[in-house]
Nucleic acid binder design. Structure first.
Lengths: 170, 170
DNA sequence: ATTTATTGGTTGCATTTTGCAACTGTTGCA
DNA sequence: TGCAACAGTTGCAAAATGCAACCAATAAAT
């Protein structure tokens, strides 16, 4: 991944990936969701190299996805906990899990299920809805430049209409 | 990322990441959602190295996320299109976009908006629901071993209860 | 029909990132 | 006080990525 490009892409996906797109990072977050808090927890469960884990945890803390909390007041050791910003990634984690379950793991059941804590019941498949509650299929989706779009982005999204390359202008 | 570990993690997130977790892959998919189909489209828009693009496109085709379709019957050149498996990643793409918009881009508006094609109206924020339609906050979520869980996974998920490390058994 | 430009790659080499294993200082606990 | 587990750091080897040049096939222009 080339950081120098990423800034220029004018896209929240790119900025998001700049934080959580590196190798291992999402798995680290998965462990955090699953209850890991301490360096050794992450290391043992993932088998990740310790130096890489250090770098990843630092980055996640710096960017506000995790917080480093001293284990006791004044202690030098600390644990890593999800911030609200980190917990807000649950959608992504669950989305990835469900996608993997659907397309990669169809035979043996899901290894892990996300449930509502209070009732123990599995959550629904994550889906895309309109603001008034209609579920959308992928085909019904489109993309348009938002308020923060650059000229380049706007030009790029012109590609979208289904029929292209019929003629070339300029 | 270490492939040799990934198999052993007994987790659909890991298998999903094995396919879409490498550098650039999600951005390539983003471009596909935005309308890119041909090698040069992806290359120009992302500024990705051409050899890496080749490798990524091959992998995405091999794993069924994209299909290679000849431009004309019998042509050797082809375009890359999202399969249903690929389109099903819309949730992830939109989720990442919205997360980036919320936490990384709050001042200037979203560069890109996902809309319902028919009406042009922006889609709702992706959220987690119970099967009977109640929206869940991250705090209300938990995780439990699914039907395909290994013994190791089951042991791992024991960590979850909020208070830990009170005592150590065994 | 021939030339030219564009497209869709491949190849080789430099740079960067990651993995691995050993080492160091710190803490918790008996 | 001593020992084991914890939380990293360091140095080097291996793998992934970036870059630029090159090549063959196709499409467009003359």
């Amino acid at each position: 991944m080339s950081p120098k490009n990423i800034d220029k892409l004018n896209c929240s996906i790119a900025s998001a990936l700049d934080i959580i797109g590196e190798g291992w990072t999402i798995l680290i977050l998965r462990e955090a969701f699953f209850g890991s808090r301490r360096f050794e927890d992450f290391q043992k469960h993932l088998g990740i190299a310790r130096n890489i884990l250090t770098v990843r945890l630092n980055k996640l803390c710096d960017s506000g996805v995790l917080v480093r909390v001293p284990i006791k007041v004044g202690a030098k050791r600390n644990e890593y906990r999800l911030t609200p910003m980190g917990s807000d990634l649950a959608v992504i984690l669950i989305g990835l899990t469900q996608w993997g379950d659907r397309w990669l793991n169809p035979t043996q059941g899901a290894p892990v299920t996300f449930i509502e804590r209070a009732t123990g019941k599995a959550v629904a498949d994550i889906a895309i809805f309109t603001r008034d509650g209609k579920k959308l299929k992928p085909r019904e989706l489109a993309v348009k430049p938002g308020p923060g779009a650059t000229a380049e982005t706007i030009a790029r999204l012109k590609l979208i209409p289904d029929v292209r390359r019929k003629k070339k202008k300029n």
